[in-house]
């Protein structure tokens, strides 16, 4: 197992409310994968951080929406 690490503190989200932090990490992760592919180590890092912050249910729901084309956030095709 890698040494203990998790999503770092993010200056953009200094408050108790981390909802946006999770969202931004998820979007960064998926945009990175679209651009550089799933095997890119940077993308894997974003993926780890997004999974650390976002509940499993949320990620599943967003993945489903992306597959159905109903994802409300930015994605490679639309931007």
């Amino acid at each position: 197992m890698e040494s203990l690490s998790t999503a770092p503190r993010d200056e953009r989200f200094p408050h108790t409310n981390q909802t946006r932090n999770c969202w931004v990490r998820y979007v960064e992760w998926k945009l990175c994968e679209e651009k550089h592919g799933e095997e890119e180590s940077e993308c894997k890092k974003f993926g780890r951080w997004a999974r650390a912050l976002c509940p499993v249910d949320w990620i599943e729901r967003w993945d489903e929406q992306r597959a159905n084309g109903t994802f409300p956030g930015p994605s490679g095709e639309s931007s």
Partner: peptide
């Protein structure tokens, strides 16, 4: 309120009526 860079993240999700926990740092 001060957040120091954490080494571990645990998610606690409330349900009617139990708690569920996620340790998503490890896959």
């Amino acid at each position: 309120d001060e957040i120091i860079n954490p080494a571990v993240t645990v998610k606690a999700v409330g349900h009617q009526w139990y708690w569920s926990y996620e340790y998503s740092d490890y896959i």
